Computed example of a mutant assay.
Amino acid sequence: MRVAFAGTPDFARSALEALHAAGHTIPLVLTQPDRPAGRGLKLQASPVKQAALAHGIPVAQPRSLRLDGKFPDDAAQARDLLRAADLDVLVVAAYGLILPQWVLDTPRRGCLNIHASLLPRWRGAAPIHRALEAGDAHTGVTIMQMDAGLDTGDMLLVEPLPITPRDTTGTLHDTLAALGARLVVEALALAARGALARTPQPAAGVSYAHKIDKAEAQLDWSQPATAIERRLRAFDPFPGATSTLAGEALKLWRGEVIAPAAAAPGTVLAVSPQGLDVATGDGALRLTELQRPGGRRLPAAQVLQGLAVSPGQRFEGGGR
């Protein structure tokens, strides 16, 4: 097939590489404009752009696709490129721009989206984070026929994936990216044979995965230990859960729920080679991996060697 691709981060690059390896003709890739990154704030191409250029695929980087929006010239140029590409389908994965109706209508077979959840659960921008934070037992990938709604289109292929007690957003991201890449190639193979069935999403079970706000990283120790432990994993590697102790804003990367103790939420219960035990609103949490400002992620015991902490101290802030 003639397949254009729209995506930006590493999650999307996996799918682009799979489509290229499967032998599809890819006349055009859409991705977000280069962004400043690193300490020098130099402009950096997205992972999808880097992959496209490595394969000699033309790249367009419109700031918007709305013909009546803030950047109509960008949208008009993208429209001309998409129409000239004579597309069978446009595959979309974590692109970052809303597709107006004219884009959805341009390819002969419409637009397919790779979504990292079991729709209709966790429609929206951060499905991996929210599934972990909520304590879901499963996540997965849905290949969806896009329509004008927010992740409301018909389901084409769905494959679940168990969430393990050790999974983080980082580990699930990589697994789901590979799964989505495989499924979208399967979907196009089925479509070519006329064997790709469409199933409307059920009306029940809809939930929304709102974009992660950095302010959410600040922990609220009045929450149960189980909820805080899930948040640590959900916010790993971004934005990282934070809380202030002994005057330092620490990042808290990993913990385990332990037996409760009678103390105010946020109170340090014990300091040991196994970690830092902290009281919560329900139960206690042993922090086992920490990071000081400007430092690296390390086992808690190593971090605590250079940080004066004793039982009875309390983490600051976090109440909401």
Rank of each mutant, 00 (worst) to 15 (best):
G306P: 15
L150M: 14
A203E: 11
L196N: 08
M144W: 05
L104S: 04
L290D: 05
A52D: 03
A264C: 09
A76T: 06
A12T: 04
R109T: 00
L172N: 12
D10P: 12
L82I: 01
H173I: 00
C111M: 14
L172H: 06
M1D: 04
I212C: 14
R83L: 08
A116H: 07
A22F: 12
A203P: 11
G318N: 04
L245N: 11
R182Y: 07
D167F: 06
G153F: 04
R297A: 09
G319V: 00
D282E: 04
A137R: 10
G153P: 09
H24R: 05
Q274V: 00
D277E: 02
P299D: 02
Q218V: 06
Q274T: 00
A93K: 11
A187Y: 05
L67I: 10
S14E: 06
G247D: 12
Y208W: 14
G135R: 07
E316K: 14
G110H: 14
G318S: 07
L179P: 14
A93P: 11
L90F: 10
P36S: 08
G110V: 00
G255R: 01
A261F: 12
P239T: 00
L104T: 01
T168E: 03
L87E: 03
P273Q: 02
A263T: 01
V91Q: 05
P47I: 03
R121L: 13
G240T: 02
S243Y: 13
L119Q: 03
N113R: 09
R66T: 05
D10K: 07
P165E: 01
A204P: 15
A12S: 11
R320H: 13
R13H: 05
S46M: 11
Q274W: 04
P299N: 05
R39Y: 12
A189T: 01
P120E: 02
I163G: 11
L87T: 00
H115D: 12
A177I: 00
T164G: 15
K49W: 11
T244F: 06
M144G: 08
A126G: 14
V206E: 11
D147M: 05
L176C: 11
I26T: 04
G56P: 15
Q77P: 15
I163S: 09
R66I: 02
A131Y: 13
A264K: 04
E248L: 12
A148M: 09
R314H: 11
Q61L: 09
G96S: 12
E216H: 13
L219S: 08
T175D: 15
I128G: 09
P47K: 09
F238P: 13
V59D: 01
G7K: 13
D34G: 15
L30E: 05
P107T: 00
A37H: 15
K42W: 13
V257K: 06
G40H: 12
T168G: 11
L179W: 06
R66S: 13
P237A: 10
P160M: 03
R130I: 00
R193W: 08
G180H: 02
T267W: 10
L232R: 08
D80G: 13
W253T: 02
R121W: 06
A18S: 09
E229V: 01
D220R: 07
G255M: 01
Q145E: 06
R292F: 15
R320D: 07
E316N: 10
E289F: 07
G180N: 06
